[in-house]
């Protein structure tokens, strides 16, 4: 998949960084195979896989394996997560905060709501903290300044409050709305 086309650039990137003994340069080119729940195979650089805390600890426990099964993760969000992590590694090697911010912002704005929400459990399961922050911030931004009804229809959530419960809740929170203009 896309991982094979992207890998040459990444390899040159990392070799530039550490032009040291052979053992060092050989390391980043090692491939790790990830297997999603729908049996798709992803081959990624070891450096990318090490961004996933869950995969990393899997290897620490059993270093001899080369395929990591990811039973909670489907292929589509996983491929997007891998794409994100590859970029982050480039930024790690070549820190540029402004560029990184720009990339992170573009990464989430071009995603559909479903893609965003699908990626969150993957980022959570793989324990990629940076990505989780970016995704959750993006979802929060999409809820921001929206009415309750809008948020419900936006996410397709059923209102399970009775009219009395909703009124009671509004009363309870009324103190916070004093002096705030109605939308």
């Amino acid at each position: 998949m896309s991982s094979s086309t992207d890998s040459p650039t990444l390899t040159t990137e990392t070799t530039q960084l550490s032009p040291q003994p052979d053992t060092e340069t050989a390391k980043p080119t090692k491939k790790i195979t990830l297997k999603s729940s729908d049996n798709q195979i992803f081959e990624v650089e070891e450096s990318v896989a090490m961004e996933f805390a869950t995969v990393k600890s899997f290897f620490e426990d059993s270093p001899s394996t080369d395929t990591v099964p990811l039973p909670n993760v489907t292929a589509k969000p996983l491929s997007q997560v891998i794409e994100f992590c590859k970029e982050q590694i480039k930024f790690k090697a070549n820190p540029d905060e402004a560029q990184k911010k720009k990339y992170n912002a573009e990464f989430v704005t071009e995603k559909s709501d479903k893609d965003l929400v699908d990626m969150i459990p993957v980022a959570n399961y793989l324990e990629i903290k940076d990505l989780l922050d970016v995704l959750n911030q993006a979802v929060a931004d999409r809820i921001e300044n929206k009415s309750v009804e809008y948020v419900r229809s936006f996410f397709g959530i059923d209102n399970d409050f009775t009219a009395e419960e909703e009124a009671a809740l509004r009363r309870e929170h009324a103190w916070a709305y004093e002096g705030v203009d109605e939308d």
Partner: peptide
């Protein structure tokens, strides 16, 4: 709503309490 509680709370944590967090409280 398939997200676990920790993830949803993380999202809510980014919202400003007035008015967004009080609005989300009324969703379900």
């Amino acid at each position: 709503n398939n997200l676990d509680d920790g993830c949803l709370m993380h999202i809510f944590n980014f919202l400003s309490p007035i008015p967004d967090r009080y609005n989300t409280a009324l969703v379900c």
